[in-house]
Simulated scan of single mutants.
Amino acid sequence: MNFAHYWQYTDAVSKTLFFILFALSVLSWVVGILRILKSRKLANDIASDLQSTITSKQNDLSKLEFSQRKMVAEQTLLQKIAQYRFESEKGLPVLGTTAAIAPFIGLFGTVWGIFHALHSIAESGQAGLAQVAGPVGEALIMTALGLAVAIPAVVFFNIATRLNKRAMHVATDTAHLILAKTAS
């Protein structure tokens, strides 16, 4: 059974589910690859960026008393880290949502294909292979498509989350070192 044969016998619901899964797949691959690239760049650049942020404020900080200098540096670093965190989480909801709903869309397609198989049996009055093979094949294809969309989304989500955790760890360590230097 080739794709053209399969496509010829599917109804509007199955075609709609196919297009939804296809769109989710393309979206999750694009978002996943971009998110991983941006998270990697963030993890590599975060320490130097935090350092340059404080260095640019060094003239203003040197005029302040110790407690004020520490507070201004701390607030500047916390604000910058919050911006990094927000930036690092962009796209993750798309990946998480895709990973969560794609199997259910595929499952709905499976149920729809089984419904077609039962309908075919009811129309013909026979439960032979000819009546159920096409609709059951359609059901299995929809299950496979749902999983094929969800699995890469989960992988991208996990990789991006891990890279983001690493970046935030580097940011926190760097902020502590900068605060220690600023305090002295």
Rank of each mutant, 00 (worst) to 15 (best):
A167K: 15
I151W: 15
L140Y: 10
T161P: 00
A150K: 01
P135R: 02
F156C: 07
H119S: 14
Q131G: 00
M142Y: 06
A160Q: 06
F156D: 06
H119I: 00
S120K: 08
S124L: 08
P135V: 02
T143D: 15
N158R: 13
M168V: 02
V155N: 10
S120A: 14
A144F: 13
A139S: 07
Q126R: 10
L145W: 03
T143C: 06
S124K: 14
I159V: 14
A160P: 09
G128V: 00
L145C: 13
G134D: 00
A153F: 11
T174K: 12
R166N: 14
A130M: 10
A171E: 06
I151D: 14
I159D: 07
V149L: 01
F157S: 06
T174A: 11
Q126Y: 13
G134P: 04
I151E: 10
Q131I: 02
T161H: 03
I159M: 08
S120W: 08
P135Y: 13
L163W: 03
S124T: 13
V154L: 06
A167T: 13
L163Y: 03
A171I: 05
T161R: 12
A148Y: 15
S124Y: 15
G137P: 05
T172Q: 10
A171C: 04
H169M: 07
N164D: 14
L145F: 09
A127P: 00
I121F: 12
L129A: 09
T172G: 12
S124P: 02
A175C: 10
F156V: 00
N158Q: 10
A144C: 09
Q131H: 02
G137Q: 04
P152L: 03
E123N: 13
K165E: 14
H169A: 03
V132G: 09
D173R: 13
L140W: 01
R166C: 01
H169T: 11
L145Y: 02
L145A: 13
R162S: 11
G125I: 09
M142V: 08
